[in-house]
């Protein structure tokens, strides 16, 4: 048991379009690996039991809780975090800009996870209704905003969303 725990593994992922490698133990959480090994501190940890959603990232395009995923499981996969959403430095994505316009964040701690769920959601659901958006958002806890500005921001992006939405 001890030997297994202390075995170091090299995990290689494509993080926000850049090939990255790091070392971890078999039990290292993906959230810890991304934050402390690769420096992606936009991944936030709020509950470590999969309820709050702050640590959500996309793995091969699918939104996942990085606090419930082992880093070794992500080996060889494509991981995106909030750091990778902007199309270029200094320019916000449509969704990020809509969040800003609508005051859809306050402390911002839950926001990166919400953005990543939206990235997955908007890629799958072209014209979501407000209940659809609220249902998707119910996988995230935000204690600051009361959610309605987040809903407005997402709906605004979704309404201008014809074919292939870019979160």
């Amino acid at each position: 048991m001890k030997r297994l725990r202390h075995t170091r593994h090299t995990v290689a992922i494509r993080l926000n379009g850049i090939d990255r490698t790091g070392e971890c133990e078999p039990r290292t959480l993906l959230s810890d690996f991304l934050r402390y090994e690769l420096g992606a501190t936009g991944v936030h940890v709020g509950c470590e039991h999969g309820v709050c959603g702050a640590c959500t990232v996309t793995v091969d395009g699918l939104a996942q809780r990085s606090c419930l995923t082992l880093a070794v499981v992500a080996d060889g996969r494509e991981v995106r975090t909030a750091e990778g959403l902007a199309p270029e430095p200094g320019v916000l994505s449509e969704l990020q800009a809509a969040f800003r316009r609508h005051h859809a964040l306050q402390c911002g701690f839950c926001t990166p996870g919400i953005l990543m769920s939206c990235a997955d959601f908007l890629a799958r659901v072209a014209r979501p209704s407000e209940p659809d958006v609220r249902q998707m958002l119910s996988g995230h806890l935000c204690r600051c905003t009361g959610y309605s500005n987040i809903v407005s921001a997402i709906l605004e992006v979704a309404s201008g969303n014809e074919d292939s939405p870019d979160a």
């Binding site: 501190t41 991944v43 909030a82 916000l92 990020q96 926001t111």
Partner: peptide, 12 residues
Amino acid sequence: EDVALLTGTGRY
């Protein structure tokens, strides 16, 4: 505050 927080570059 928002640009940093939306791009995952907050300083918590």
